[in-house]
Nucleic acid binder design. Sequence first.
DNA 1: CTCAGTTTTAAATTATTGTTAATTTTGTTA
DNA 2: TAACAAAATTAACAATAATTTAAAACTGAG
Lengths: 230, 230
Amino acid sequence: MKNQEIKILVVDDEPDIVEILRYNLTQVGYQVFSASDGLLGFSEAEKNTPHLIILDVMMPNLDGIATCEKLRADERFKDTIIMFLTARGEDYSYVAAFDAGADDYITKPIKPKVLVSKVKGLLRRLKGKQNSPNIIQFEDLVIDSDSYKIIVHGEEINLPRKEFELLFLLASKPDKVFKRAKIMERVWGSEVVVGDRTIDVHIRKLREKVGNKYFKTVKGVGYKFKLPKS
Amino acid sequence: MKNQEIKILVVDDEPDIVEILRYNLTQVGYQVFSASDGLLGFSEAEKNTPHLIILDVMMPNLDGIATCEKLRADERFKDTIIMFLTARGEDYSYVAAFDAGADDYITKPIKPKVLVSKVKGLLRRLKGKQNSPNIIQFEDLVIDSDSYKIIVHGEEINLPRKEFELLFLLASKPDKVFKRAKIMERVWGSEVVVGDRTIDVHIRKLREKVGNKYFKTVKGVGYKFKLPKS
DNA sequence: CTCAGTTTTAAATTATTGTTAATTTTGTTA
DNA sequence: TAACAAAATTAACAATAATTTAAAACTGAG
């Protein structure tokens, strides 16, 4: 995975700090997003699914620790690396940070070299594990998660977000049945509450657009992505 | 995975440090092994395949960095988490550590709470990955609980939920007789009340689909899954 | 603010699965 | 082996779950 493909989200209420981080990380080639408090940070994370999130501990609305807990409680971010930003000497806070599920922390004032080293180190780990290729391909179906686009025997189709994510989830483990609860958790997130019929409707749209043959209903359990040949 | 099942290897030449680590980690329930230098550490790792290894940077025979590189070069340890132990202030060393493929580091003097927090955090990540495929297999029968599907001499059959769960239960302990009450509890749940004939009917359907030879009735007691050969 | 596209809900319909009840068969035991 | 209880069998029925449609609610871009 190239640096350009790596998304980092910076969450801090001090614009100066955000800028320092953005500057240094952009310099090395990462894509940087930002948000000014925990709540906004969480929605930003939902939107971009960044690879790494840097959270300031002290923030309005939802502090770093709480944000981290919220993220860790969410299936969608189980592989996301979380890093804390803390003022030097606040010793208590970084114990709490690790308890909340953080992967590392960095102290203010920020030293660019240390920052970049840490980030690189943390991301290195990601690379090995990142066994989810951005493109899934079967006979006459290509699923490209960079552009939220699929190609069905030559024809290019853009899928809306939820539809795409549902398809991507199912297709990531062909033949595995995903229970409705799991689908809910992975595609909609644990906090959102929507009816079960919503999943059905999205499946229906996918069957329409992608092809009925790919989707198998397992009544009472969930759905699975079926390989055409088998 | 329970804490008791998690193996941690501590490699350091200072017995005091080893003891501090061992004490704190054992306290939380982990299994702790130790070795006094890099070479011994490596053989110990080969013997126990620990989930996490804590390496001191400064060690005789093979220092931490070199040991880490040696471990990382070995397929068997590609999923092992490696953590470094370093004296505070040796800034250079932890850059080198990450380069060698470390996952994290901790500075001396060791603060127990920080140590345990870090270890927990790193292991959290491991837990998600450790998913064993839930497949039971006999001669000409494969029961795959990921896909709610069975294969009987080559032929794929999709089973409805209750039927599958009943089959899975019985097949999970071949030759063990499951009492009707037990089956009821496990497949239907304790709140639901249905007649005893319901089980019979499901068994019948399974005999039809999976093959009569697998199911043995124990009159007055329940049913068991019988291995064809035995 | 408005519009187009997306997402969710609701309700009628259809399909599948699970349960029951009536009947036959089997196995056990006196 | 007759008599009884338990289990198998069958088909009809009930319950549950999914599909389909259409329309409402929401969202973000301009």
